[in-house]
């Protein structure tokens, strides 16, 4: 058990270091950019030059870089992410307002793509070399190769504009319908097309991963032994192969959960879904660096956290990992 504790300690230290480096890089990326937001306001003649220095001082932009960095870290420690130039609100409010929409959309489509991906992957590996395998493989590769925004546009044109079955934009009707259940149904109605779009492009990854690892496992000695013992094929597949083959997929799912908060810029753009992905794009166009910096930070933290959880889960599921020294 002490090896396992050592493994967890190593992973924790590693995650902390990565987090610190990411925060630092995140700070510097947005300081080396040409034109801070104040100078953009000046060029657009929103502010008089005399006011500019005052605004710079207010945002701490007149300090030397290292002092700005210290200030940034200190603000992060008290949970202050800065103030949005464009939305005129604290950054954390701007992001959190859109976070539920993004988590809902990404969460639902991730669940669907994982389930569909795993089921098709197992089916393809089980029926390897047959027409079923080739069909699953080809369709997975095809959806993977399609631009996500194009699938969205096609679905929107057909089911939104032409057939009128689904709303063409937004996350909710305006004004929102009365009553709790009506409201939930309304959101689900708006969410259907974007969720289908995201599921279609991402299930293939899990299918290919599941099929690949299962085929790898099926050539292992212990499977040959299990078959040689005369166990029925189904039992070999379920009891011996699948348990081991699920490992990489579990890790992949855990890691992808970290990216849920980053949203899907392209899909959110097509469906005018008011989420974090679209926010990042809008903030960039407005040169609203505090919002961008805040969004990148929140996404990075959740990705690091998800990777950390994935490492721990892997350590629990696969004992070889925690005795393997570096554990990478």
């Amino acid at each position: 058990m002490s090896e396992f504790r050592g493994y967890i300690v190593r992973r924790t230290i590693y995650a902390m270091i990565t987090l610190f480096l990411t925060i630092t890089i995140n700070f510097f990326i947005f300081r080396v950019m040409p034109g801070d937001p104040v100078s953009i306001m000046v060029s657009e003649r929103i502010l008089k030059p005399a006011v500019v220095e005052e605004v710079r001082a207010m945002f701490g932009l007149n300090l030397p870089l290292w002092q700005q960095y210290i200030l940034y870290i200190r603000n992060l420690l008290i949970g202050y992410l800065g103030y949005s130039f464009h939305w005129k609100e604290p950054v954390i409010n701007v992001i959190m307002e859109r976070m539920p929409n993004t988590i809902l959309l990404m969460g639902v489509s991730t669940i669907f793509s994982v389930i569909i991906g795993i089921v098709l992957g197992i089916l393809a590996a089980w029926k390897r070399g047959t027409k079923i395998d080739v069909t699953i493989l080809t369709s997975s590769l095809t959806f993977y190769s399609l631009p996500v925004f194009w699938i969205g546009m096609m679905l929107l044109m057909l089911f939104g504009y032409y057939l009128g079955m689904f709303p063409i934009a937004g996350t909710m009707s305006r004004p929102p319908p009365e009553g709790f259940f009506e409201r939930i149904l309304d959101i689900l109605h708006h969410m259907t097309l974007p969720a289908i779009t995201l599921t279609l492009i991402s299930y293939g990854e899990y299918t290919l991963l599941m099929r690949g690892t299962l085929l790898d496992v099926l050539t292992q000695d212990y499977i040959v032994t299990a078959r040689a013992k005369g166990l029925p094929e189904r039992r070999v597949l379920v009891r011996h192969a699948m348990r081991n083959a699920l490992l990489p997929t579990v890790t992949a799912v855990a890691i992808s959960l970290g990216f849920i908060v980053s949203g899907a810029t392209l899909t959110e753009t097509v469906f005018s879904w008011n989420g974090v992905g679209r926010l990042i794009y809008d903030a960039m166009m407005m040169r609203d660096y505090p919002v961008l910096q805040g969004a990148f930070l929140i996404i990075s933290i959740s990705v690091i956290l998800a990777n950390y959880v994935a490492d721990i889960v892997y350590g629990i599921l696969d004992p070889r990992i925690r005795y393997g020294g570096q554990g990478a």
């Binding site: 990565t18 480096l21 990411t22 890089i25 995140n26 990326i29 950019m33 040409p34 990216f259 980053s262 810029t265 392209l266 992905g277 990042i280 794009y281 960039m284 166009m285 961008l292 969004a295 990148f296 996404i299 990075s300 990705v303 690091i304 990777n307």
Partner: peptide
């Protein structure tokens, strides 16, 4: 390399391309 993998890909590219 890890840090570049952690910062979300498309948003990072949007920022760089816009700059």
């Amino acid at each position: 390399a890890d840090i570049l993998l952690i910062i979300p890909g498309l948003p990072l590219m949007i920022v760089l391309a816009a700059i």
